[in-house]
């Protein structure tokens, strides 16, 4: 028993993600780029829903669309002295463009040449309940390590951005 992805939803969300990413690169305003990144993250959350990963979709909205977007906006606001500083000249970086295009072309060729699975996907997808059970049994130790990583990152961020009295 197998099934396929809902094509219309996938193509709409893929278009939204790609359009947002291209707009993020083609805008000259850093604040606009942040909002476009937020749009890409929301489209990716939709793609996770299409791929039957409900928990990841929720975490994506909470962490990326919530925390990361707000953090980036705050940093942009804290590091801009004038309003005009948000608008940046468009970089002329043909070398970067060539490297990125070469890399993407190589990846696309690799996907065409070597893709282990076709369009058919298994019909069974465990729900969020099974996900939680697995997370707190099989993946217990990595989960605790992840909390430690986040604690260290929190303390480090506070230390680095701390006051001038050091």
């Amino acid at each position: 028993m197998s099934t396929t992805l809902p094509a219309v939803a996938f193509y709409l969300l893929a278009f939204a993600a790609l359009y947002g990413a291209i707009s993020m690169m083609s805008t000259r305003n850093v604040v606009h780029a942040t909002v476009w990144l937020l749009e890409v993250m929301l489209a990716t959350a939709g793609l996770y829903l299409v791929l039957d990963a409900e928990f990841l979709a929720l975490v994506q909205v909470l962490v990326y669309a919530g925390a990361v977007a707000v953090l980036t906006l705050f940093t942009v606001m804290l590091t801009l002295r004038r309003r005009e500083d948000a608008v940046r000249p468009f970089p002329t970086a043909w070398g970067s463009l060539a490297i990125a295009a070469l890399f993407t072309g190589a990846m696309l060729l690799a996907i065409r040449g070597f893709c282990p699975v076709g369009v058919e996907m298994p019909a069974i997808a465990p729900g969020i309940e099974e996900f939680g059970r697995e997370l707190f049994t099989t993946w217990m130790v990595p989960f605790e390590v992840a909390s430690l990583v986040l604690l260290v990152a929190l303390v480090g961020a506070v230390w680095w951005t701390g006051g001038d009295d050091r």
Binding site: L5, P6, A14, L47, R88, I99, F103, T104, G118, V119
Partner: peptide
């Protein structure tokens, strides 16, 4: 029909756009 190659292609394109931005931006 949409399958794994489509998902991988979309991810590769997004990664390429991000790579271009990470390499070219000064901010």
């Amino acid at each position: 029909t949409v399958g794994l190659p489509h998902v991988l292609t979309l991810a590769a394109l997004l990664f390429g756009i991000g790579l271009y931005g990470a390499l070219s931006r000064k901010n």
